[in-house]
Amino acid sequence: MAIFQLDINNQKMEVDCAPDMPLLWCLRDELVMTGTKYGCGKALCGACTVHVDGEPVRSCSLPISSIENKKITTIEGVGMKTLHPVQKAWIEADVPQCGFCQSGQIMSAIALLNKTPNPTDDEIDAAMSGNICRCGTYVRIRKAIKSVAKNNL
């Protein structure tokens, strides 16, 4: 066990946990931030996607010891005051079915659009293919991403 200083959603936080604990379980169990989901634990499904210094990463496979002094953003940290444009687009297109994968989908989409405001289909595929949606909301995910892109033009 060790104390780690974390910067999550622009807040300084301190946790006392095993150094190899993945960020996912630190968020969920220690900090009671449950917006980030468990889907596979092996970086295969994207349900646990968060941003580390703006990059989308799978928090289930990211030991806490590797992220001190890095800026973490979770689904709770986007659109805190008003909804993020990607969240708005998700609502506009009625993307979610069960919704369980959507925190991860939205985090991946935000990261994509930050870097590539106008992604092609191939770029969307590349950025989003790590995120499984068992309900199959893919058509609307693509549509929502494109609608944000259009507003970026």
């Binding site: 917006g35 980030t36 709770e76 609502i91 009625d94 993307v95 979610p96 959507q102 925190s103």
Partner: peptide
């Protein structure tokens, strides 16, 4: 739209 839509997209 589903009742839980906004809760879902905000986690």
């Amino acid at each position: 739209s589903i009742y839980d839509l906004e809760d879902i997209v905000t986690g």
